[in-house]
């Protein structure tokens, strides 16, 4: 079974040289720490950065340099700054090659719910709806089951949707899955996790059409 870092490391293996990548808050943010050697990617932050770098050294924080999570960050050499309309032009116009974000639920059609729980305080969708509506390649980083032990990979999402038919791939603590016609295609198992365990934790249709390899992290 993977921990959060493990999920981030596995997603980092999906990065391709030259890609522009938008990382959501939470596990997705960790992906930036595990970019494979020999590969160069630029991270886009939707509040207006291309070429986002690591957190600043202590004492070098700048109130005018934050990421979309409102954390102080730095710029890498060759970075660019722009306004919010330009930022979402990059996203909507499909100039960003990969979006990684978290989710509360994903359906077997690729619908995603990650912004609202009815009856609880609603904070808003931020940029998530724009990102999922337009990104060509969306990877969801999330836990396979919720705290009550219920599957988050469902036939139909029960929570209000963020976007429809948009998720391409899911990496959880148990597995790597791809959304194809008909459901969740199981691609890889996490180290030490059985196919039965994944099956039991997946409410939506799980497609297993070959021997499932253990992932290398």
């Amino acid at each position: 079974m993977l921990d959060k870092v493990g999920i981030a490391k596995r997603i980092a293996q999906e990065l391709k040289d030259g890609w522009y990548v938008n990382l959501g808050i939470g596990i997705p943010t960790l992906v930036a720490n595990y970019v494979p050697t020999g590969i160069k990617v630029e991270f886009q932050s939707e509040n207006g950065i291309l070429g986002m770098g690591p957190f600043p050294w202590e004492g070098e924080e700048d109130a005018d340099m934050i990421n979309a999570g409102k954390q102080t960050v730095t710029l890498k050499k060759g970075a660019a700054i722009f306004d919010s309309a330009t930022s979402f032009a990059m996203i909507r116009g499909q100039h960003v090659q990969l979006t990684v974000l978290g989710a509360m639920e994903v359906s077997e059609r690729g619908d995603i719910a990650n912004w609202k729980i009815p009856g609880k305080m609603v904070k808003g969708m931020g940029g998530a709806m724009d990102l999922v509506a337009s990104a060509e390649n969306i990877i969801v980083a999330m836990m396979h089951v919720n705290k009550a032990g219920e599957s988050k990979l469902l036939k139909e999402c029960t929570l209000p949707l963020t976007g429809t038919r948009c998720v391409k791939k899911i990496v959880t603590e148990l597995a790597v899955l791809e959304i194809i016609e008909g459901g969740f295609k199981l691609l890889e198992r996490a180290p030490g996790v059985t196919v039965e365990h994944i099956q039991k934790s997946t409410e939506g249709n799980l497609i297993i059409d070959c021997e499932i390899p253990e992932m290398k992290v």
Binding site: F55, W57, E58, A63, T72
Partner: peptide
């Protein structure tokens, strides 16, 4: 004042 909402840093 330019308040910082989430002060995140690396330790030297």
């Amino acid at each position: 004042e330019k308040r910082i909402e989430q002060r995140t840093t690396r330790k030297r």
